[in-house]
């Protein structure tokens, strides 16, 4: 209970602020309409109106929740408006990009830890790659992959998603694989252990906590990457496409529901990684007693 209370308080505060902001932002429209009709609405009337507009600037929580429910649970998933359908499109690219990014990050980290040359030559480029805004690169990746004859958007979306997710994995895994101290490494030297044995018996298991921390960041970054990959050049499928359509056609409800669908998806993915982490730590005896 002591842990639930603060969480509830924070959540309630956010909802209250959200409602207040909804009233404030949507009231412009309400007052505008009233003025044209020559009416002067009371404060109660204004609030009531801001809660139920068709195209609210900032839809209040209950509207978003209702719309989310309609677009996920009540729509058939084959419908072009179903968020389950669009979420699934985005999830596919996310998972592909996540897999590619994670493998790439781990492989590069292994190389960097074992080779000073790779450390010097790869690490700077990895860092530079992250200073380039992804929204600048995304359209180029899509255009280039079309130019080399790749149909559809799965491949470019996967590339963009992997581009965002490999970096946190790389940085964490380099740190994790280097986490054994000098004494631990000396101990293995006294056994005349090979580099491969040092890797499998010491470095890899020691990096496990770092691995899972990076997986949580990477899976969320993959989702962002997939969505960014859907934004440019008129995609019509995926959560990113819904966000773009919503903003272009002045339909805030579409935008907000897509946004929340993405957030819920990300939370679910991070939660899933957390479960795997707990399982792995328990299997290796490191779980909390």
């Amino acid at each position: 209970m002591r842990r639930v209370l603060p969480v509830l308080v924070v959540t309630a505060a956010i909802v209250v602020i959200w409602y207040a902001a909804s009233v404030w932002m949507n009231s412009t429209w309400t007052l505008d309409q009233a003025e044209r009709a020559g009416e002067t609405p009371t404060f109660g009337q204004i609030v009531a109106d801001t809660m139920a507009q068709d195209r609210p600037l900032l839809p209040p929580p209950h509207q978003v929740a209702a719309e989310l429910w309609e677009l996920t649970a009540e729509k058939k998933i084959t419908s072009k408006r179903s968020l389950v359908y669009h979420g699934w499109i985005t999830l596919q690219a996310t998972m592909l990009g996540f897999a590619v990014g994670a493998i790439m990050g781990i492989a590069l980290a292994i190389g960097i830890v074992h080779s000073r040359t790779m450390d010097m030559s790869v690490m700077p480029w990895a860092i530079i790659s992250q200073t380039v805004p992804i929204v600048a690169i995304a359209p180029m990746i899509i255009v280039l992959s079309n130019a080399v004859g790749i149909d559809g958007r799965t491949v470019p979306k996967t590339i963009i998603s992997a581009y965002l997710s490999y970096f946190p994995v790389l940085v964490s895994m380099v740190k994790g694989l280097r986490s054994p101290d000098a004494m631990q490494l000396d101990l293995l030297r006294t056994y005349s252990a090979s580099n491969a044995q040092t890797f499998w018996k010491l470095r890899l298991p020691a990096s496990l906590p770092y691995f899972f921390a990076s997986m949580k960041v990477a899976v969320a970054a993959s989702l962002v990457g997939a969505i960014v990959g859907e934004l440019p050049t008129g995609a019509i499928q995926g959560l990113g496409a819904r966000m773009l359509i919503g903003s272009q056609f002045g339909e805030p409800m579409i935008m907000w529901t897509a946004l929340f669908a993405a957030a819920i998806l990300a939370a679910g993915l991070v939660f899933l990684v957390g479960l795997l982490e707990r399982l792995a730590l328990r299997l290796t005896g490191q779980g909390a007693p």
Binding site: L187, P205, L208
Partner: peptide
């Protein structure tokens, strides 16, 4: 060392937490 002539004990036990 290659002939396994010695065992070395360090100041810290240095046991792997992931192994029994």
């Amino acid at each position: 060392r290659r002939a396994r002539a010695y065992g070395y004990v360090f100041q810290a036990a240095g046991l792997y937490p992931w192994r029994t």
